[in-house]
Amino acid sequence: YFYRVSRSEFVAVLQADYVLVARAKGLPTRYILIRHVLRPASSQVLTVMGLSMTYLLGGSFIVESYFAVPGIGWTVLNA
């Protein structure tokens, strides 16, 4: 799922006008990809990762409460 989200974001950002301008200026491809593409595309990926972490912690809390084993889910809930 992360791969699909990141790929779609990269494709969308690569088609942006400022990437075309950066290429027209003659900037190296590596610089364009890191500076102009990776930064804007990473925001959507980080959002999806944050949502996945909440599901992971919620699932761990359910498993820990079912098996009566203290762990990170219980610690996060008590915090």
Rank of each mutant, 00 (worst) to 15 (best):
R4F: 01
V5A: 03
S6K: 12
S8H: 01
E9C: 06
F10C: 02
A12C: 05
Q15M: 02
D17E: 15
D17Q: 09
Y18L: 02
Y18G: 07
V19G: 05
L20T: 14
V21R: 05
R23E: 13
A24E: 03
K25Y: 03
K25L: 10
G26T: 08
G26D: 03
L27G: 06
T29K: 11
T29M: 12
R30N: 04
R30V: 08
I32Q: 01
I34F: 13
R35H: 06
R35E: 05
R39M: 14
P40N: 02
S42C: 05
S43N: 00
V45M: 08
V45D: 07
L46F: 12
L46Q: 05
V48Y: 03
M49N: 00
M49R: 03
S52T: 02
M53H: 05
M53Q: 08
M53V: 10
T54R: 13
Y55D: 14
L56P: 12
L57S: 13
L57M: 13
G59E: 10
G59M: 08
S60R: 09
S60C: 11
F61Y: 15
E64L: 01
E64W: 07
S65I: 07
S65H: 05
A68C: 04
A68G: 07
V69I: 15
P70C: 10
G71P: 03
G73R: 08
G73N: 13
W74T: 06
W74N: 06
W74H: 07
T75W: 15
V76S: 03
V76C: 01
L77T: 08
N78Q: 04
A79F: 11
